[in-house]
């Protein structure tokens, strides 16, 4: 079997001290993304459990897989969750969800929880898209853009490069920071052309870490251009798989001249967390539980 250089690991987390049976309202959010799917369970608005799993060939199964993993070992079952919100590109295909909400609104709400209500600018870099969101203190979206047409600036672009260089995706960031001084960024935006450019750099004798540095810089620059359209405020938060790539994040921070707000939570769960928070608000608004 060929090694998959570009996959993030799956993970699963449970609160050690909370008990869902004592909670008034239990809600869940499920974010069915193109590469991975996350499920977050909240007990009275506090993080109780989450899981991040690979997305399979269809959305309903992927959603079920993620929520099952999150519920595993807790005694919780789907019918005991008061409200479930689906989000992400597969959101309309989550049969057991009560409502579907766009990932834009969910990410903003999730980031507001994770980074605090000071968060104003959110960058989400997913497997196949890139989103920029500007929100208010309640996590309500004021301005957003999304790019899911072009692979450049998405996790997929990075995967192509990692694959070309046979570098595991999790090592791309640290390796790109091994260079003393950043080389000029790869000049092509288009991933197809950037790949040829990287090949010719390798042929010129560039080591892998230098090529990765050039690509991470190019990606950072592209993301900054994207963010400038919606306006960047210094209360800046990054979510999604790329938030784990220190090579890209540090270069984005450098180019913007600001540091992203750190959070104790896993950056990949923002969408699902926001969805679960919407769920809680909807239960409270309705004044009744399912």
């Amino acid at each position: 079997m060929t090694q998959e250089y570009w996959r993030w690991k799956e993970n699963n987390w449970k609160s050690a001290d909370k008990d869902w049976t004592k909670a008034e309202i239990v809600t869940a959010g499920i974010d069915v993304g193109s590469v991975s799917s996350q499920a977050v369970i909240l007990a009275d608005g506090e993080l109780y459990a989450y899981a991040s799993m690979r997305t399979g060939s269809n959305s309903p199964d992927s959603a079920l897989n993620a929520i099952t993993a999150a519920m595993e070992g807790t005694g919780l079952t789907l019918d005991k969750i008061h409200y479930i919100v689906g989000t992400g590109y597969g959101r309309v295909n989550v049969p057991f969800a009560h409502k579907a909400i766009t990932e834009i609104a969910c990410h903003a709400r999730g980031a507001n929880f994770m980074g605090g209500n000071k968060v104003r600018t959110i960058l989400d870099m997913g497997g196949q898209d890139c989103k920029g969101i500007h929100c208010d203190e309640k996590g309500k979206v004021l301005n957003f853009l999304m790019n899911d047409k072009c692979a450049a600036g998405t996790g997929r672009g990075m995967e192509v490069m990692a694959d070309l260089l046979s570098v595991p995706i999790a090592e791309v960031g640290p390796m790109s920071l091994e260079v003393k001084e950043d080389p000029p960024p790869v000049s092509s935006t288009c991933v197809v052309f950037a790949k040829s450019e990287a090949m010719s750099l390798l042929k010129q004798g560039w080591p892998k870490n230098k090529v990765l540095a050039a690509y991470c810089s190019a990606m950072a620059h592209r993301v900054v251009t994207l963010l400038e359209r919606i306006g960047v405020e210094k209360e800046f938060f990054i979510t999604g798989g790329i938030a784990k790539n220190i090579g890209v994040v540090s270069r984005i921070e450098k180019e913007l001249g600001i540091k992203a707000i750190k959070s104790e939570y896993d950056s990949q769960i923002a969408g699902a967390l926001g969805a679960a928070l919407f769920g809680k608000a909807l239960v409270e608004k309705g004044g009744k539980k399912k």
Binding site: V141, F144, L145, C150, R222, I230
Partner: peptide, 11 residues
């Protein structure tokens, strides 16, 4: 809300 629909590519 300002909703930006579209994309940015190499061109």
């Amino acid at each position: 809300m300002i909703a930006n629909y579209g994309y940015m590519d190499g061109s």
